[in-house]
Structure formats: structure tokens, C-alpha cells
Design a protein around this nucleic acid. Structure first.
Lengths: 392, 392
DNA sequence: ACCAGTTTCGGGAAAGTTCCCGATAGTTTT
DNA sequence: AAAACTATCGGGAACTTTCCCGAAACTGGT
């Protein structure tokens, strides 16, 4: 009944256990184990067989190598053959499979971008800038957001690394104190560039703006406008950008011989709720500040809303300055004084630095620190002296 | 001088042309063509050999199949062996190469998201919603923006398709009139789900909000507030969302026996500049409207800014209603009446529908149309009668 | 016809993984 | 102890592309 597929005998075949649910046989004659091959199921064919280089080769009766050469634009090929291949490829809507290529070359042409959030104007704009130069260079981007959480950031970095991105563009989360996950990236020699929220302890390229001078200008402007008790709603001390802006604030006070009150300096985690809470706290002090320099525009906006809800008059009773020139700062009333920074340019520069790292050998990597200029835009929220421009 | 690598003879070897810059030889004795092999260059080794399944197998003296089984959590393996493998894998920081897997299974675990822009609140929030459910399901996302341009949209779709995404989440561009590029996606049987800006002519799942009723409510509210010449700054007629909101506008007027003035209905391309231009146009008409229903909040904001700059009093001389409840609409003064929609939920629903398509057979695909509710939020920009809540 | 030289093409390896299936050693049943 | 199993493992194909290199097919000149 059962015929040995090797010696074609029947009589020497005997049962020999069951493997994975299928009866196995043993042919004593030719000492051969076997199971009956199942007839292939014709109902379930290939899902959607993407047209490959082999389809073209078979259809044309040539080899895959030749097709590859034609598609790659190699010289080693007859003009007629090339045309034939190119025509058929177009007709079949052939699209090269980037996975095979990526596997072979171990590069995916994907760049990972990791930002704390992208609800506001700032990070989306940076991403747009980066995307502009990256897509020109033939790269796609994969965007993740850490939500300011250290754990999420670690998870995201791992996910991006496991996706084998060719490089990483990162702005670190507010809660991040440990940068081992970025060290792991560098250990695997994957190019890494920071922007805005950078890691000074790591030897990587980074793009920031002149945070110190920006903050200095902002606070000096407030002082010149006559404000004297200037508070600073700062970012977490772990971020360099927070420390730099804080230093600018401190030095501006010092230059003008104003006392530093620690109670007027608040570090917070950059969440909306906390901004509101601390704004309320500051304004309900027995001696409330007469101005607040905020780490960024969303923070400044929150402060402004709290002040308005408490009936505090801006800029008469409270001056406010933000940072970044979010479009909303010119829309809100009173309009917000802020520091303009070339947001889109930050993304472009970061992308350029990253591309440079990618195309260079690891030994040539240079931790370039790019610093872009800021520019103070004075609007209503800090213009105490309304008469400046009027004739005497 | 030259020894044949086959027969080791010297005397029968003769030159035989040059191939790719290298001297070729021919051995008459054994009828064999050959070129001299170049010594391998020892200086350039592998860049950074990612640890593979084979490294583990070799180090343990077992086969790659066994390692794969252990890593995959198969049953067909000895507990001790598995532990050994798992331990070594952890020690070596082994990360499976998703490219190889993707090539084999022809699925990348990447979802493409295509939006017109992400500068404003709306699309980033949708993306966040989608990302939330997609990353839980083990998918990464690749985000593109069409910038409202048809050409860019086509390019992006091609790029995402060539990246072999497992599915596509799309909101179409304002300028898109031709949907052949989406037909191509469906032809390749790649799951496709639209949201907000949908393609009714394609049989795909889609997630929208109740645009018609939302618009109807908005306009009816304006009428109830006493406005009579209500203009509509609409989106391009090519978008279903524009047509639905327009219809809601029209029907609300009709219900209240107000005449439809075609001059007060303007379709535009959703760019900021055009919004400003048309707002100015409307307000400079000999008989300007006393209210404007805007297709969305950014448009409404632009109108508001234009009105303010022209000294038009809101809401007394001009009522304004937007759509989407962008956070800015509650910040601006006067605050903007708008239709709240569950933005984040749109992204989540769309992602769910997409996952469902991915996990189902093509034959089971259903073009589900999900319609989420909107909710009118009345704020200052349309509250003509301030006395409503005061005692008589 | 012969040979040097050139043009064009094909075969096979490689990339890393999963999966199928055959194979072996050990274990239980009769 | 043979027979019937079970548990565990290895070998190889497959996925798609690129690249190396050998080989065949030409081209002219003698």
C-alpha cells in the first residue's frame, strides 16, 4: 500500500511513529525514513506576488544579473537589451524591493527622528526642515515622540535601532537624566545628531541656538522696560538648554545689579498642567514678580492665560517674555514678546550634520556644535513704556 | 611565469585579452580562461558586524535553526538548550534583523501616514492617536506630508509603497483631483484607510466626523444669534469634507428662509495667504457679510486677524465660527466658536480599521465608514446677544 | 582560420531569518 | 527486544537584490 519513494518497494515499508501529526514510515529495504508528502493546496496561492527582477528575467529569457545591470544603469550591457528590460520593467510597474537591498548593504535609507512632542509649532517645524533635506538625499524618516518620558524615550530608541535606521536625529526628553541608551547607539556606530535638547556629555554633533545670549537679551529687555522682580519659569535642570537660559537670566540680573531670588526661579517638567500651577503660585506670592521670563512660548502662553484669569494686567502689572516665536505668540492678546529662532533651519542643519556623519567613516566623525542666532522680537507683553515712539 | 590554476602548467598559458582592466589568460592545456586573483585587502574589514543568529549558533556549536527556534519561542526545543541560547543572546545584545524577516514574510511592520501638513493642532493630534494604537500592535510609522500638493502626494505615496509599508493612513491634499495613485495602492492589495479628507469614489474604510450636521449646527447657531448675511469660506470642492460642510451651511440657510448668495461662498485651497486674501475680499464688499462660517479653525483665525486689523468688531459686526476646536481658538480674543471633534479618536479609529484590514484577507475587506460626532462650542466670536444669561 | 581584444551575459554567493521536513537518539509500549 | 513513539536538532530552501568573476560571443586584423 505504501510505496517507498526511494526503492519503490512496498513490502518492506512499516510504520515508524508520528511526527507533527503525520504518519511516518520506514523502509527496511533501503533503510529510509519518510512521510507521505501532502498534495499542495492549490486554493491558497501567493498573496500578491510583487513583481521582481526575476519575473522580468524569465519573461525575457535572460538572467537576473542582466536585468539588475540594466536597472542599475551599468555599462556592461547591450543598449538593445537594456531598452527591452527598461520597457518591460515600466510596463510591469516594477519597483525594486528596498528590503533585499537593505539586507545586502545593511543600510535602510531610513532616518529616525525622536522628539519630545509635536503638538506645538516648534518640533513639527524642525521635522519639516529635516525632512526637506533628508528626502532630497533619498532618505525616509521615522518619527517617534517620547512624550517627555525617559522610559518612552528608551523604548523609542530601541525600536528605531531595531528598525536598523541609518541615523538618528534626537531632541531629548525633559525627564531624561541617563544617556546610556544613546551611548548604546554610538557603540553600534550609528550616526547620532542632537538638536535643541542636546547631550553635552556625548561626543556627537549638535545644533542649538544661542540660548544664553537669547535669554540674556530677553531679561535685559525686561529690565530696561522697568521691571525689577523678574521670575524665571525654567525647564528641568537636566537639560542644557534650561541651564543656558537660566545663566543668561542670572547674568542679565547681575549686570544690572538686581538681586537673584531663588524663590522666583522655578524648574518644571514642561507639561501644561505644571506650567499653570507654577504660574498661579508665582502670581499668588505675597510679593509676586512683576515680570516672568518663560523657558519657551507654550509656557509663556500658559502664564499669560493664568494672569488674565486672575485679572493681572499685562504688561502693566506683569511683563512676559517667551522663547521661540511660536505663531500663536503674535496672535494672542496682548501679543507676546519672544525670541525668534530659525526653527526650520535647525532641522535642516541637523539633517546636514547627520548626512555628513553617515557618509564619513567612523574615524572621521566630528562632534560639530552648530549654534544658530536668536533675535528678540518685542511685542506688547513686555512693553511697559508705551510712549517710547511718541514725540516728546 | 603564469601558472594555470587548474593544471598547474606554465608553458601552455597565453594572454587572452583584458577584462575590466585585468589581464586575462588562457591555458591551452586544460582549455581554461582565468585572471589572476587579487589578494584580499586586509585593511578594510566589516564595518560593524551586527551580531546575528549565526554568531550564536557557532559559538554554541549548534545550528541556526535551533537558535531561531529558541528565540521564536518554539516548543520543539530542549529547555536547557533554550536557556543557553537565550542567555547568550542577551549577553551579546542580539537584536533580530527585521530586514531579513521582512524580506522573507514580505511585511515590514511599518505603516505609512500621509497628511497634508502638520503645523497645526489637527493632524499631529490624529497622528498621535494613530501611533498610540499602532505601536501597541507592533508597528512603526512613517510620516509624510503632501503640503496640499497633488504632485507631492503622488511622490509620497510612491515612496511609501516602495518602502513596502504594510498599510497606509491617508488624508488627501487639497489640490488632489485624481486618485489613480490610490487605485494603484489598492491594486497591489495594500490596505488603505482614509480619514478626514476621504475618497468616496474608492472602496476603502474611512473615518470622518459628522461634517454635515456640524456645519448645519454652526450656521443655525449664527442665524439664531441674529446674523443674516452669512458667508462661507469653504475648502476646495474636490474634498468631500468641503462639500458636506457646504451642504450643511446651505441647508441651514434654507431652513431659516435665508437667501443663498453665491458671492458669499468662496472655495479656496486652504493656504494661509489665500485665507487672508479672501477674508479681506469679503470684508471689503459693498455689502459685507455679518458672519462667516470657516471650513476650519486656522481659516477662522486668519479671518479674525484680518477683521481685527480692519477694525471690524467681533462679534458685534462680524460673527465667526470655525471647525475642529484647535486649542488656539480658546486662547484668541475674542475666543472662537467652533465645532469640537474627537481628533485623537479619529486617528485611533483609523488605525483600528487599518489593522483590521491588514489582518483580514483581501476578500474580506469592507469599506467601513466611521462617522464620529461633533459638538458645537459657543464662544465669544459668535455671541451677539450678550444678555442671554442675564436676568431679565 | 587564428588570435588578441572587447562586449555582453550568466551563475552563484552573499545578506539574516524562518520554516519545512527529514533525521537521529532516546523512551515507552507490547 | 522489536515496534511505536517522542523529543530534539540539522540541513536546506526561500525571500530579493547586488556584485564578482568566469565564459561566451563578437570584432577586426592578420
Amino acid at each position: 500500500m505504501i510505496k517507498c519513494p526511494k526503492c519503490r518497494e512496498v513490502e518492506f515499508v512499516q510504520k515508524s511513529g508520528i511526527v507533527r501529526g503525520k504518519q511516518r514510515y520506514f523502509c527496511k529495504s533501503c533503510d529510509y525514513h519518510f512521510t507521505l508528502p501532502e498534495p499542495p493546496n492549490p486554493t491558497e496561492g501567493k498573496r500578491h506576488h510583487q513583481v521582481t527582477i526575476m519575473d522580468i528575467a524569465n519573461q525575457l529569457g535572460i538572467s537576473k544579473s542582466t536585468v539588475s545591470r540594466a536597472l542599475r544603469g551599468h555599462t556592461d550591457i547591450h543598449a538593445g537589451t537594456r531598452k527591452m528590460i527598461l520597457d518591460l520593467a515600466q510596463q510591469l510597474e516594477y519597483q525594486p524591493n528596498p528590503l533585499a537591498n537593505a539586507l545586502l548593504k545593511s543600510r535602510t535609507n531610513i532616518i529616525g527622528i525622536l522628539v519630545p512632542e509635536f503638538r506645538h509649532y516648534f518640533f513639527p517645524t524642525i521635522i519639516m526642515g529635516a525632512q526637506e533635506v533628508l528626502s532630497k538625499a533619498g532618505y525616509n524618516v521615522m518619527i517617534c515622540q517620547s512624550d517627555e518620558s525617559y522610559e518612552t524615550e528608551v523604548t523609542n530608541v530601541k525600536a528605531l535601532m531595531s528598525s536598523r535606521v541609518d541615523g538618528l536625529l534626537v531632541s531629548v526628553a525633559a525627564q531624561t537624566n541617563n544617556v546610556d541608551h544613546f551611548r548604546a547607539v554610538l557603540r553600534k556606530e550609528v550616526p547620532l545628531v542632537f538638536f535643541n535638547r542636546v547631550c553635552p556629555e556625548l561626543e556627537t554633533p549638535q545644533v542649538i541656538v544661542d540660548d544664553y545670549n537669547g535669554a540674556f537679551q530677553a531679561v535685559e529687555h525686561l529690565i530696561e522696560q522697568g521691571y525689577r522682580r523678574i521670575a524665571h519659569l525654567a525647564g528641568p535642570i537636566s537639560l542644557l538648554v534650561s541651564r543656558l537660559r537660566l545663566q543668561g537670566y542670572l547674568d542679565a540680573l547681575q549686570k544690572h545689579n538686581l538681586p537673584v531670588e531663588n524663590g522666583l526661579i522655578i524648574h518644571y517638567d514642561l507639561t501644561e498642567e505644571k506650567a499653570r500651577i507654577y504660574a498661579n503660585y508665582l502670581l499668588s506670592l505675597p510679593q509676586p514678580p512683576d515680570a516672568i521670563f518663560a523657558i519657551n512660548d507654550p509656557t509663556a502662553i500658559e502664564i499669560m492665560l493664568v494672569a488674565k484669569s486672575r485679572g493681572v494686567k499685562i504688561p502693566q502689572e506683569l511683563g512676559i517674555v517667551g522663547f521661540s516665536n511660536d505663531p500663536i505668540s503674535s496672535i494672542i492678546e496682548p501679543s507676546l514678546t519672544t525670541l525668534e529662532q530659525p526653527v526650520r533651519e535647525i532641522g535642516k542643519q541637523a539633517a546636514h550634520l547627520l548626512l555628513h556623519q553617515i557618509n564619513a567613516d567612523v574615524s572621521e566623525w566630528k562632534p560639530v556644535h552648530q549654534v544658530l542666532k536668536t533675535h528678540l522680537i518685542v511685542r506688547e507683553s513686555s512693553r511697559k513704556e508705551k510712549v517710547t515712539n511718541e514725540p516728546a
